[in-house]
């Protein structure tokens, strides 16, 4: 197991956001986590990175217990996150954002890393000297993913990369995610509300509600599951057939 989350509970003050979550991710997989707003998907990703910290349970990465490690140490082990809301550095240029992304990587590979993410996102190359805050939503999302990739992670956590993007951009972003996984061998843990796209892309998937994992299976299994269809895909599914973003 590359990442193993066992019985994790997380609180925001008195409010319990995760109620004993178990997730396991293997090397080379794309695993997606779907669920409604407020189900705890983002909290799980953030807990893996140590902020907020898990109150109970255990998180291990490549056999090492990372439950109590500070965030910046966790990142050093080879986990990178493209956080919810992108959180790029608005007053810094695209290149400077990428530079900060490469903080934990060795300086010598910076040019190589930049070339690599520019190949994945040619738009960023055009915008390289532009400030992050002046980019469009889609460009900012690309920058957030590119920035995460600059640390040469083995596990990439993506939080809602399709949020607020035009349909054409959504498919483009999902294509890139697939490419990162297939040609570079980066394991991907993807949180999405766009269940249809995510399930089609993922090898395996988890469904989350109220801080619990409800169900898991291969992407195709869940796509064919009636309950899932009813809860997360109906209405959205038909639209997504013609390339619309399904709003679960």
């Amino acid at each position: 197991m590359m990442l193993e989350v066992t019985g994790v509970e997380t609180f925001y003050g008195n409010i319990q956001a995760l109620r004993g979550v178990d997730v396991a991710i293997q090397q080379g997989e794309i695993v997606t986590l779907i669920g409604a707003n407020g189900a705890g998907k983002s909290t799980l990703l953030m807990t893996i990175c140590g902020d907020p910290r898990a109150a109970r349970g255990r998180i291990s990465f490549e056999g090492r217990d990372i439950t109590r490690l500070p965030t910046y140490e966790i990142v050093r082990l080879g986990i990178a996150q493209s956080p919810e809301g992108r959180r790029i550095f608005p007053r810094m240029t695209v290149l400077e954002n990428l530079q900060i992304g490469s903080t934990v990587a060795s300086e010598d590979h910076f040019d190589e890393g930049v070339a690599r993410v520019f190949k994945l996102f040619p738009l960023l190359q055009e915008r390289r000297n532009q400030r992050g805050g002046t980019l469009s939503g889609g460009e900012q999302q690309m920058l957030a993913i590119a920035r995460a990739l600059m640390s040469r992670p083995r596990l990439l956590l993506l939080d809602e990369p399709s949020l607020g993007l035009a349909p054409r951009l959504v498919s483009q972003i999902f294509d890139v995610i697939k490419e990162i996984n297939e040609s570079e061998g980066v394991t991907i843990f993807l949180v999405e509300q766009n269940a249809y796209h995510a399930l089609r892309l993922a090898h395996r998937a988890y469904v989350m509600a109220n801080g619990n994992i409800l169900m898991s299976g291969t992407g195709q299994e869940l796509l064919n599951n009636d309950e899932i269809r009813a809860a997360y895909l109906e209405g959205g599914a038909r639209k997504t057939d013609v390339g619309q973003a399904g709003d679960a």
């Binding site: 965030t71 990142v75 959180r87 790029i88 900060i100 903080t103 934990v104 920035r147």
Partner: peptide
């Protein structure tokens, strides 16, 4: 610019 984001990038 963003303390949380910088932390998650290894700063």
């Amino acid at each position: 610019e963003d303390e949380t984001a910088s932390q998650s990038l290894g700063i």
